[in-house]
């Protein structure tokens, strides 16, 4: 098996008043979309800046695409695309000037490629960046991160400030990158931003990884509200006893309940009746995600 795209061991970064990282063990496999979740100040940006060799670790090891950022930084960054949540650049230049320059730093990106991405995101390349709205400025950032088709995309809170259209297009680009076998490492403080695309999510808190889970598993574990409409009224007791089912209420022919985990038992029980309609809400991973936090807080408060 190929080396992981990102691998850190016991990564520590202390600086000033900030605690930074307190021992981060992170492993991102090649070809996956990894959501890096945590509240503001948990160490997400610190991790990303360490991967890019913008800052240096206090202790621990980092390997990115099999290379060490500190030693092989220049060659390594050729293979990486990076987008910061707050994409700041000198506003006096046009988007095209900036993108041409950044492309040249990478050994040249064809003009047609830049035009294609700009057209896709509906970005006017010939306006000065100063005159662009926040969303349009962020589009420039998206173009520069994707234009050279990097092996690894490192995206720090990428969709903050993007309008729904752009978010949709952006997520499609992330999916395409994965389909091409590229790796995407994406940080966020909201689950909804990554749950649509990520294969796995890692949750960081106070500078270390609290948990890593497959999004599919999270979905399975998540609580969802289910509403089943039957042809005839059903008994509440029959459903209340099922594993994972709670808060059952029956109003006429409509049954509402909360479902924790797999839907199997509920579906099989319902199949004994004539089912007219079935409605299951998309599970709220946010709730589950914050469940980790509150549990963590409870443990640390008890200690």
């Amino acid at each position: 098996m190929a080396e992981p795209a990102i691998h850190t061991e016991g990564l520590v970064k202390t600086y000033g008043r900030n605690r930074g990282l307190t021992g981060l063990d992170l492993r991102v496999e090649r070809g996956e979309v990894y959501g890096f979740l945590g509240p503001n100040g948990a160490g997400k940006s610190t991790t990303i800046r360490l991967l890019l060799d913008l800052i240096r670790p206090t202790a621990g090891r980092i390997s990115v695409l099999g290379a060490e950022p500190r030693r092989d930084g220049v060659a390594l960054r050729r293979r990486i695309g990076y987008l910061a949540g707050d994409f700041v650049v000198d506003g006096r230049q046009t988007a095209r000037e900036l993108l041409t320059y950044l492309g040249n730093l990478r050994g040249g990106v064809p003009r047609a490629r830049i035009d294609e991405l700009a057209a896709r995101l509906d970005l006017d390349l010939d306006r000065r960046i100063r005159g662009l709205s926040k969303g349009n400025r962020q589009k420039v950032g998206v173009v520069q991160a994707f234009m050279h088709d990097p092996e690894l995309l490192i995206l720090d809170e990428p969709t903050s400030g993007l309008d729904p259209f752009l978010q949709h297009e952006f997520l499609a680009m992330v999916r395409e990158a994965r389909a091409d076998g590229r790796t995407v490492f994406m940080s966020s403080h909201v689950m909804s931003e990554v749950q649509q695309t990520a294969d796995r999510v890692g949750i960081i808190r106070d500078g270390r990884l609290v948990t890593v889970a497959r999004v599919e598993e999270l979905r399975e574990r998540a609580v969802r509200k289910v509403e089943i409409t039957f042809a005839e009224p059903v008994g509440q007791a029959e459903f209340a006893a099922l594993p994972g089912v709670s808060e059952v209420s029956v109003t006429g022919t409509v049954l509402r309940c909360r479902l924790d985990g797999r839907a199997d038992a509920l579906v099989k029980a319902a199949a004994g009746h004539t089912v007219v309609g079935l409605l299951s809400e998309e599970p709220d991973l946010e709730e589950l995600f914050f469940g980790y936090y509150s549990r963590e807080e409870a443990t640390s408060a008890a200690a």
Binding site: R49, L52, D53, L54, G73, V74, A75, L76, R77, R78, I80, Y82, A84, D86, F87, V88, V89, D90, L102, L105, R106, G107, Q144
Partner: peptide, 14 residues
């Protein structure tokens, strides 16, 4: 200080 150096140094430039 303008916050614009990060982007350039995230590119393949020593």
């Amino acid at each position: 200080e303008a916050g614009t150096l990060d982007l350039v140094l995230a590119h393949p430039v020593g």
